[in-house]
Simulated assay, not measured.
Amino acid sequence: MKIIYIILALLGIFLFNACTGTVQQQTPQKTYTRFQSVPLSQAILLQHGNKKEDCIICGMHLPTFYKTNHAATTKDHQIRQYCSLHCVVHDNEINKTDLYDVKVVDVTTLKFISAQSAYYVVGSMREGTMSHFSKYAFAKRKNADAFVKKYGGHVMNFYDAYTIAMQDFMTEE
């Protein structure tokens, strides 16, 4: 009877991994399977040091989750880069890091833009990074609307997307 439970557990693990869209890339040469991913050569890394490719909060590989990347400057003028808005909120609200000049990657151009002027699409069918609700940003409203038409979700501003990201921490407690 124990062997049946072991087989079922292994089958469950296999099915879970097969269905979650696990990233196949460990190096820039392999193919990406996540929507958020770009090759390292296309990622703009704003922070410095030997861990510049990693999210300052969770350590996730920034190019793998590039289309949800954010960056901000601290009061001591240090640039910090994040895999997601979730990690920005964690650093700002939980760690009490005083962040300003928040930037986000524009999904269309893959360049950093001001988060304050971005159009966020929240809750699309595309997977989220560090959250159940995806949050993708666009410099132009027409691009955000086209994304919503294709993948669903709601267009909102940075403040509203930030407020939704804060809810992730209310459910974790």
Rank of each mutant, 00 (worst) to 15 (best):
109 T>R: 05
163 T>S: 05
131 S>D: 04
87 C>S: 06
21 G>D: 09
110 L>E: 06
163 T>R: 06
164 I>T: 09
32 Y>G: 01
161 A>T: 15
111 K>F: 10
90 H>T: 14
148 V>N: 11
136 Y>V: 07
156 M>W: 09
113 I>A: 04
86 H>C: 07
66 Y>C: 13
44 I>A: 02
134 S>T: 01
137 A>F: 02
123 G>M: 03
4 I>F: 07
126 R>Q: 08
136 Y>E: 15
6 I>L: 05
117 S>C: 07
43 A>E: 14
35 F>Q: 03
167 Q>R: 03
53 E>F: 13
147 F>C: 04
154 H>P: 00
80 R>H: 15
118 A>W: 05
173 E>S: 09
151 Y>Q: 15
121 V>Y: 05
38 V>T: 02
52 K>L: 10
171 T>M: 10
8 L>C: 08
123 G>P: 06
51 K>E: 00
37 S>P: 01
125 M>G: 09
48 H>S: 10
113 I>G: 05
120 Y>A: 09
35 F>W: 08
45 L>C: 08
56 I>E: 03
12 G>H: 10
13 I>A: 02
160 D>M: 06
157 N>M: 02
131 S>M: 10
20 T>D: 00
119 Y>E: 01
107 V>R: 11
42 Q>K: 15
84 S>Q: 07
84 S>R: 09
157 N>Q: 05
26 Q>D: 10
29 Q>Y: 14
47 Q>F: 02
15 L>K: 07
40 L>C: 02
45 L>T: 14
147 F>L: 05
49 G>T: 04
91 D>A: 14
29 Q>I: 15
33 T>P: 06
57 I>H: 00
166 M>V: 14
19 C>P: 00
142 K>C: 03
154 H>V: 02
168 D>M: 09
10 L>Y: 08
57 I>S: 00
74 T>E: 08
146 A>M: 05
37 S>L: 00
163 T>Q: 15
94 I>D: 15
142 K>G: 01
141 R>Y: 15
100 Y>A: 01
5 Y>P: 00
169 F>C: 13
68 T>I: 00
34 R>C: 08
99 L>S: 01
12 G>V: 13
33 T>F: 12
108 T>S: 13
95 N>L: 04
91 D>R: 07
166 M>Q: 15
144 A>T: 06
127 E>P: 09
25 Q>P: 01
76 D>N: 13
82 Y>N: 03
33 T>C: 09
150 K>F: 11
59 G>H: 05
153 G>W: 02
136 Y>D: 12
47 Q>Y: 03
97 T>Q: 08
18 A>C: 01
170 M>I: 13
166 M>D: 12
153 G>I: 05
72 A>H: 06
51 K>T: 00
3 I>E: 13
49 G>M: 03
105 V>T: 04
95 N>C: 03
167 Q>W: 13
114 S>R: 02
12 G>S: 07
42 Q>W: 04
102 V>S: 08
62 L>Y: 06
130 M>F: 08
11 L>Q: 01
21 G>L: 10
141 R>P: 00
151 Y>R: 10
43 A>R: 03
22 T>G: 03
2 K>G: 09
45 L>A: 12
